[in-house]
């Protein structure tokens, strides 16, 4: 594997007295597609929220593109990162949320254009062109002037993906992006993610409960349990042929004909 794009070293995270992550060591390759599975409360979402700088680790280090995410160099050695430094290092990371978090006061197009114009200082014309391309790609080229409240959940989530893609992230994080959707809308969202995965050049970390989907698109599956990575391997191994009892037990809660775990 070439130089990893994200590196976790002995990362711990506590919320109050509760230790959610109990020592995570993890390398993510530049174009790797990683599915994070595990029971709720196992720390899956926290792992990617740390990478997006939405939470800070209690201890340990995270590197992105060889740069320390939470600590920066100074005359006195490493010191906690400030806002300016964080903005430099998190530019390569994009995220799609469970509850979409679209900006309700902006049209679909404005949702996509705002960040490239103001954060990346792109011209309005090029931001617009790129945004329209991405909205076309997620199948919403005809909805660009609507407001989020006028869209279905599946459409909102596709806009959220286009909005993140416009920023050309090198790693894209998906936080249970289909969990808040009506069952009949899940397919259209997974379809877009599948296409992205096929394109190949972007690393993707997906927190998901869609086992079939993980089996289908991921290069690698991580099983998280109680704050530690219990199993790490290709989907055929982790989902197709689980070894530990806990993993078997977890998988048995999902019914599917595509894999066996008996």
């Amino acid at each position: 594997m070439s130089e990893p794009i994200a590196k976790y070293r002995d990362v711990h995270k506590s919320f109050g007295d509760v230790e959610v992550l109990k020592g995570i060591d993890l390398d993510i390759g530049p174009a790797e597609k990683v599915a994070l599975i595990g029971p709720s409360g196992s720390g899956k979402t926290t792992i990617i929220r740390l990478l997006m700088t939405l939470e800070n680790p209690t201890s340990g280090t995270i590197e992105v593109n060889g740069k320390n995410l939470w600590h920066m160099e100074s005359k006195n050695g490493l010191v906690p990162a400030n806002e300016k430094y964080l903005r430099e290092v998190r530019g390569d990371i994009g995220m799609v949320f469970q509850h979409f978090n679209l900006f309700p006061h902006m049209t679909i197009l404005e949702n996509c254009m705002t960040a490239p114009i103001h954060v990346k200082k792109e011209s309005k014309a090029s931001a617009r062109k790129r945004s329209l391309e991405m909205l076309e790609k997620v199948g919403l080229g005809d909805k660009v002037d609507l407001y989020p409240s006028q869209l279905s959940g599946g459409q909102k989530q596709r806009v959220a993906m286009a909005r993140a893609l416009v920023m050309r992230p090198k790693i894209m994080l998906f936080d249970e992006v289909t969990s808040a959707l009506d069952p009949e809308l899940v397919g259209e969202v997974l379809e877009v993610i599948r296409d992205l995965a096929k394109e190949g050049d972007m690393a993707m970390i997906l927190v998901t409960h869609e086992m079939d989907f993980a089996l289908d698109i991921a290069d690698r599956v991580l099983f998280l349990n109680d704050g530690v990575i219990e199993a790490d391997g290709p989907p055929s191994e982790i989902i197709g042929n689980p070894q530990s009892e806990r993993l078997k037990d977890f998988l048995s809660r999902f019914t599917s004909s595509n894999y066996s775990h008996s």
Binding site: T53, R87, G91, M95, N101, F103, A115, H118, V119
Partner: peptide, 27 residues
């Protein structure tokens, strides 16, 4: 204003000031 709005604007790498001016205050 929903905390998810701040999180989405951090994910788009907006500065504190941009988050306030373009996302939080308008709402």
């Amino acid at each position: 204003v929903a905390p998810g709005q701040t999180e989405a604007s951090i994910a788009l790498n907006m500065s504190k000031f941009q988050r306030m001016r373009m996302v939080i205050l308008p709402q």
